[in-house]
Design a binder for these strands. Structure first.
Lengths: 341, 341
DNA sequence: TTGTACGCGTTATCAG
DNA sequence: CTGATAACGCGTACAA
């Protein structure tokens, strides 16, 4: 008996409610939104009835009328990366507390795709946009054009003057080198992220600056590039172990790459930290596991997401909110992948 | 100079385009949607102009008019769990290829929250709903009422007659025991998931059935319950190691719990697999890492997401599509956490 | 305080 | 093939 006698399953709209109650649509609307200009008695009566019949306003129509959708788009590289998953979870939880929903997009680190997503955000009238992904300068122009609150997370964009929260990635790269220096390392390699990632680039700059400050030489052949995945770290290790001249330490753009890299090294008999020290970035949960125990640099995901949401809500509530840039301090977590040389 | 001379930043709407071109809104709409009933010449002209001025239709208005939003809601427990993150990523990629966007919700395994989310889906006119989460029977009623395509992933719901794709979780639990039996184990414990998770329950049933079939006794004191998180596995291990009488093998509801559990065991000097064999479920990427190398049961995430999307698209395209239930076969992946007793 | 009428941007129906 | 116009459901000035 699919769809039996009672076809009355059709959802009520505000006009139905108004008719059934013998009042006007405006009154229903006012009762619904807590708008002033309605007697307490009528409001109570309407709300009670609404609750009874289970009426809920159509969000689409509300949004079309108001010109704003209570959805915030979250664009990031790949949610399978625990760092992003943690950010996603926190941001989603915090925003939902303020009545916003989150639309998730994985750009897969593809610039073209990302630009397309921003365009999509525009035609969708999202309430706001949170970007956590690599990008090029052409993005800036499109963002300025966007006319909706934007928050950049852990990324710098040239000429972008909106709000952002990020780790001091330069410092992060710098203290990674410092830690290794103190352990006596002088030949230090680097695995970077995508060349368009400002976070990766800044870490690299910090690394180069530290090398330079302490008179250490830089070797192009000890540079690799990763796309932040475990598998890639593993592949890089294969190449790495076959090199005749190896550095005694590697700084690696993220924990996931480092974990894959270590896996590959171990498989080829390279012991960590006896033969090679490793420092990476993120401090994802699994980096503390027995058998992994990465020395890594914490990005303070919790603070990052809190600030990101706070910045977004500020812009959402006041039109005239001036942009803020919040910079978090990196924290070195020493575990067991670094040792004196 | 915020908002300089050119305030003309306002987005064009279909009426603007029509006027500028001296045609009717209907023609623009037809050109846009590939609707028949317009000459090729006019269509080309309109499309060219639209492309030039960069006009894009307002999706909200489209949806309100059509009564359907091209967004599919994805409700799951916690995206920080790699199993869910993988599903999310795949589902999002596949659906976006068909022009749908994905709205992500973390129910945090909370039934109340989940029901609220389903209600939200209703008032939002989503195109469809994909559910990957634990739930109780009261959910079914609400789903039937929903009047939008629903696909259940890896969950069974009493009296639910919609489409679903799931692992044969009973068999999964059964073959976990079989594997341990072949290695000579007879005292086998079990760490389950949330009591409302049908996946966990089915695995447990398979486990009990296998024990019973082979005359092994069941011991209540070797049962634990996890919320699928690493930390929880770790906590359980603390309790486990202090037990005077231990089983020689444990079956654990998911890889994450198993990883935390192993971590805790190792920390207390319990060697795996020498002192304790472990079989878990999921086969997430990190379970194959050196130093972890879990013996686990693969759920075939890729197939699961492909089927989920296919089932959704089928329902979306044809009103009269009858529900399908797809059952995937579990695959045992033997690594290094199981050994002969 | 309450109700009326119009606008939001698009699609769909029906004339021409 | 093309164009005017009525929905879609709700918010909101404006009028009563």
């Amino acid at each position: 008996m699919r769809r039996g006698i009672e076809m009355k399953n059709k959802k009520y709209n505000i006009s139905d409610i108004a008719k059934m109650l013998g009042v006007s649509e405006s009154s229903v609307s006012r009762a619904l939104n807590g708008t002033p200009g309605i007697s307490d008695a009528l409001r109570a009566k309407i709300l009670a009835f609404i609750d009874e019949v289970g009426y809920r306003p159509n969000t689409l129509a509300q949004s079309l009328s108001k010109g704003r959708l209570n959805i915030i788009a979250l664009i990031l590289g790949d949610v399978r990366n625990p760092f992003y998953a943690d950010l996603t979870f926190d941001i989603q939880r915090l925003l939902s507390e303020s009545g916003y929903m989150v639309m998730l997009f994985n750009s897969e680190y593809d610039m073209t795709r990302e630009l397309e997503l921003i365009r999509l955000a525009e035609q969708f009238n999202f309430a706001g946009l949170i970007l956590i992904t690599a990008k090029e300068s052409s993005t800036t122009a499109r963002l300025q054009h966007l006319d909706m609150p934007v928050v950049l997370v852990n990324r710098i964009l040239p000429h972008f003057d909106g709000s952002s929260v990020l780790l001091d990635n330069f410092k992060a790269g710098y203290i990674a080198v410092m830690h290794l220096l103190e352990l006596g390392h002088s030949k230090i390699g680097f695995i970077s992220g995508h060349s368009v990632s400002s976070a990766s680039n800044q870490r690299y700059e910090g690394y180069r600056q530290a090398l330079s400050n302490f008179g250490l030489s830089f070797h192009e052949e000890h540079m690799y590039e990763s796309d932040l995945k475990i598998e890639t770290g593993y592949q890089i290790a294969k190449d790495f172990v076959s090199q005749p001249e190896k550095p005694s330490a590697m700084i690696i753009v993220n924990d996931l790459t480092a974990i894959g890299f270590m896996d590959g090294c171990k498989q080829h008999g390279l012991c960590i930290p006896q033969n090679l020290s490793i420092v990476s970035f993120d401090n994802i949960r699994m980096s503390s596991l027995l058998g992994i125990e990465l020395t890594t640099i914490d990005q303070h995901v919790d603070q990052m997401s809190e600030h990101a949401v706070a910045l977004m809500l500020k812009q959402l509530s006041s039109e005239t909110h001036r942009p803020e840039r919040i910079v978090l301090d990196p924290t070195l977590i020493v575990r067991k992948t670094t040792a004196p040389i």
